[in-house]
């Protein structure tokens, strides 16, 4: 009882990376709290699913296997999670900050009257003293996230309500196998007792899910542009540099909002988190939401003409100049000198 639960998303029989990252984080939190890590998978044809999940250090795997449960729809998954949590009383519940987790999480938190913090960038365990109520809490989940335009970092706690719920975006936490032979137990969920016909009110008529076109997470070099690129045309320079270097193009939220490039290239707290070998930030000022998504990069080059840009303070190299002048020079040298 009072263990850590991770809701695992599944697409085409494969557990989503974000869920495996949360299992990894959940395992280390469980070690710290000396409790068990439990995973929940809800879908169809899940006979072999344990193989994907247990190596991350999962002690108990709850499986709800029913043809009606895949693909994901809100109500049946909510009913199962709510019933399961009522019975098992987890102290912490984690979900991906994906379209599924962001659809399911708030619904579950509302039904259980428990707090939910979206898009956490860090999860820690710590105590809390409520001086007004004269109460001391131990081992709370600190849900840490940038807030309010990134001007602040907020630490959120749920002192009284359980489970303490948080969502985290893909790529924010690291994915790490605990042991290939980790032994856990499978518990089958009695689906019929938890869902009602009314839960299937929403019907999926068509579904086209594509393999991701842009894979920023796997790129070793990322050339990212911000609002300072000035135009969609100038953004073309970034594609040229990325192609020459064998990298991918990323963008800040401001650049995406300005229509310079597509949303799937957005890096930062509300986009993708990346850790490439080299990150070239072009015309990016470096607000904290953006930095939250890229500060784990091994090397950072900032190109801009604002000596006060926040990005400069986390960069290894700062090139003070106009991106439209600097990038062609980089391309020219690389083409002439690489093997």
């Amino acid at each position: 009882m009072n263990n850590i639960f991770v809701y695992c998303e599944i697409e085409d029989g494969i557990i989503a990376d974000v869920s495996l990252e949360l299992l990894t984080k959940g395992r280390s939190l469980a070690d710290q709290l000396a409790c068990k890590l439990e995973a929940v998978v809800i879908g169809s044809k899940l006979d072999e699913i344990g193989k994907q999940v247990f190596p991350y250090g999962v002690d108990v795997l709850h499986v709800a296997d029913d043809p009606r449960l895949a693909p994901y729809t809100t109500l049946p998954h909510t009913s199962i999670i709510v019933n399961l949590f009522k019975a098992e009383k987890p102290q912490i519940a984690l979900m991906g900050a994906s379209p599924v987790g962001r659809d399911l999480g708030p619904r579950v938190s509302s039904a259980l009257y428990s707090g939910l913090t979206a898009d956490c960038t860090s999860l820690e365990i710590g105590g809390h003293e409520d001086k007004k109520e004269n109460k001391v809490y131990e081992n709370l989940l600190y849900q840490i996230r940038p807030a309010f335009g990134g001007n602040i970092i907020a630490t959120i706690i749920n002192p009284e309500c359980r489970p303490q719920m948080a969502t985290v975006r893909e790529g924010v936490m690291k994915k790490e196998i605990r042991s290939a032979n980790y032994k856990g137990e499978i518990k089958k969920i009695d689906v019929a007792s938890m869902v009602s016909p009314a839960d299937f009110a929403i019907e999926i008529i068509e579904r086209h899910i594509e393999k991701r076109k842009v894979n920023l997470g796997a790129a070793s070099v990322i050339v990212a542009g911000g609002y300072g690129m000035g135009s969609k045309e100038n953004f073309g320079l970034l594609y040229q540099l990325a192609e020459v270097l064998g990298g991918e193009v990323g963008a800040s939220r401001a650049a995406v909002d300005a229509g310079f490039t597509e949303h799937e290239r957005q890096i930062g707290q509300t986009g993708v988190t990346v850790r490439p070998k080299l990150y070239i930030a072009c015309g990016i000022s470096g607000q904290i939401q953006h930095r939250a998504g890229m500060e784990g990069s091994a090397q950072i080059i900032a190109i801009n003409n604002d000596p006060g840009a926040p990005i400069n303070s986390i960069a290894d190299y700062v090139i003070n100049g106009d991106v439209t002048d600097v990038i062609p020079k980089m391309i020219k040298y690389y083409k002439a000198n690489s093997k």
Binding site: Y113, T117, H128, I153, I157, D316, Y317, K329, M330
Partner: peptide
């Protein structure tokens, strides 16, 4: 509200020693 704000930190940049480069051909090369 079940969630409470425990604390707010202002964002403090831990400045690295960035190498400053100008946009000349020689330095970029």
């Amino acid at each position: 509200s079940p969630t409470k704000v425990k604390k707010i930190d202002n964002v403090v940049l831990q400045a690295k020693e960035a190498k400053k480069i100008d946009a000349s051909d020689a330095e970029i090369n």
